[in-house]
Design a binder for these strands. Structure first.
Lengths: 119, 119
DNA sequence: TTAACATATGAACATATATTCATATGTTGT
DNA sequence: ACAACATATGAATATATGTTCATATGTTAA
């Protein structure tokens, strides 16, 4: 049964367009994954880490030194980068070296740079 | 004068590397702008809006209908996209049509898709 | 086994951010 | 001028996120 007062009804103007665009929308999971992926780039600390790793693989404490941050903060961020397969690591004794895991990273990065330079 | 107890000193292992990477680091403003730029992509609502606008220009209420969200929420997000020059708009009477403002958007988007598909 | 070191992690806190609600602004037709 | 409509915006709230602190894990050398 419908209530006689209908609130929050979304009104659209171009029904055809809405239907068409709605049908072509990405799958919910893809959307969430994409947003998650970009969210990783949306933090200055992680951007710095990625940019540092563009130059060469580095261990955690060296990254911390480059960023002038404490080891814990860097480690937390590295975990996020690792979970999203943006960086990988190898162990050498006590030291763990991190490096880039993916070529898309550089491409995304440079498209971002292009944008902020041209706007 | 130095305190005899020195806490939170950042210890690095490879001084040379640290110096080199630190010197080649992006400027603080560039870093912040980049992070800001990607932060815009890091939200499912904005991703949906951008993807919708890939198909065609749309007015606010149609976008709201596509996303199944209220007008205010969409408007707030459009403002963010507008501020970062990702979308532009034109007015036609009462209606305001939004569209993509930048080719980098699509490129960034597709690199992101590539990444999540290959990982 | 123990000390020293490199890194990881859980909890707590402070800050940032998205959505909602109410309302303001700006446009059109009467 | 007024009503109806499309959009924008400020404030409030709830949630997400980054950093710090304390501590745990894992490795090496003695």
């Amino acid at each position: 049964m419908k209530k006689d007062i209908e609130v929050c009804e979304i009104q659209c103007i171009h029904e055809e367009d809405v239907k068409e665009v709605k049908d072509s929308m990405l799958e919910p999971n893809t959307l969430l994954d994409l947003a998650e992926f970009f969210k990783v780039f949306g933090d200055a600390t992680r951007i710095k880490i990625l940019y540092a790793l563009f130059q060469k693989e580095m261990c955690v404490c060296d990254i911390a030194a480059v960023l002038d941050m404490n080891q814990s903060a860097v480690s937390h961020q590295l975990r996020i980068l690792k979970n999203h397969r943006l960086v990988k690591f190898r162990r050498e004794g006590k030291i763990i070296y991190y490096s880039l895991d993916d070529d898309h990273v550089k491409k995304v990065f440079h498209e971002g740079l292009n944008h902020i330079e041209h706007s």
